Simulated scan of single mutants.
Amino acid sequence: MASLIAVVVAHDSADALPACLAALAAEHVPAIVVDNASRDASAAVAEAAGARVIRNPRNEGYGRANNRGVRAAETAGHVLVLNPDVLLRPGAADALLEAAARWPDAGLYAPRIVEPDGRFFYQARSLLAPYLTNPKGRLALPEGDACAPFLSGACLMVERRLFLDLGGFDEAIFLFYEDDDLCRRVADTGRALVHVHEAVALHGRGRSSAPEPGRVFRTRWHQAWSRAYVSRKYGLPDPSFSGLLANLPKALLSALVFRRAGIERYGGSAAGAWAALRGRGALEREGLR
């Protein structure tokens, strides 16, 4: 059994994949690339790098594609879920596995994710955190390994059996908040989420996919819809109505002054909130159900 297999979901990620897969190979971590109907050479690039490639005939979304990859990693004890624009630094994979051996009762493990400006990502609270709630959002960056309220889906490690037993990522979500939801379900089992400080990964943030027309509108739609979905799922106040009120006037004003960026940004948020209020699903929008 392989101790660790990486799962990388690609969508128009040909530019980012070579460095990501090379870093995994340097760490002796085999990779499964799930290609979400890329229009570029992502699948061919991944195969040339030695990765096993699973081709989805259409874009299935982040969570659904990752679930398919994890199910395919049949020989793995642990799986490492990471974005194509994430590069493991030397020793990161071993540090994550050592943390899992040190705290076997924990549920999720994530490296110190370093952003392009040199700062490292650490989210001090989560909308869904049932513990370590930090309501004032006080940011105290860890100086070593620490329990966390949230670990980013950009790069995290989990025991494969636990992931599958929990049902993987929620497949009703196409994009956004699926990592918050997974963190919540892991925490609800009584397992900790562990920030592993000595494991370092570089994050390109925003370089996972090539730009495409309408991307901002689509992104904002799913952000608004997914926030409403997970809020309802865990009995939190539904933000849809307030989100609609906040964004619709800005979208209309942007339309009046022919400001395309504002139409996409605020119009996407308003449309996602409106869809959530109407009971329309994210998969329905994407033609997946």
Rank of each mutant, 00 (worst) to 15 (best):
V34T: 03
G61C: 07
Y62D: 15
Y62I: 15
I54Y: 05
P57H: 12
G50E: 10
V34K: 02
A65T: 11
E60K: 06
A46S: 03
S38E: 05
A46H: 02
A37S: 15
E47M: 12
V53M: 05
E47T: 14
E60C: 08
G63K: 12
A41P: 00
D35G: 08
V53E: 03
N56S: 13
P57D: 15
D40I: 00
G63M: 13
R68T: 14
R52C: 08
R68C: 12
R58L: 13
V53D: 04
G61K: 05
S42K: 02
V45W: 00
R52F: 09
S42R: 02
A37N: 15
N66T: 12
V34W: 01
S42D: 03
D40A: 00
S38N: 06
R52A: 12
R68H: 13
E60G: 07
A37W: 10
V53S: 03
E47I: 06
E47P: 04
S38M: 05
I54F: 04
N67F: 02
A41H: 00
E60F: 07
A65C: 09
D35H: 04
S42A: 09
A51R: 06
A49Y: 05
A44S: 08
I54W: 03
G63W: 12
P57E: 14
V53N: 02
A43L: 11
V53L: 05
A51C: 08
G50Q: 12
A46F: 01
R68D: 13
V45H: 00
A49Q: 14
A43S: 15
A41T: 00
D35L: 07
A51G: 07
E47V: 10
V53Q: 02
R68N: 11
A46L: 03
R55D: 10
R55W: 07
A46K: 02
R64N: 14
N67H: 02
G61S: 06
N36C: 14
A49C: 14
G61E: 08
E60L: 15
N56T: 14
V53T: 05
N66K: 08
V53H: 02
R68K: 14
R52T: 14
A46N: 03
R55Q: 12
V53F: 02
G50S: 11
V53I: 04
A51V: 06
Y62L: 14
A51N: 07
N56F: 07
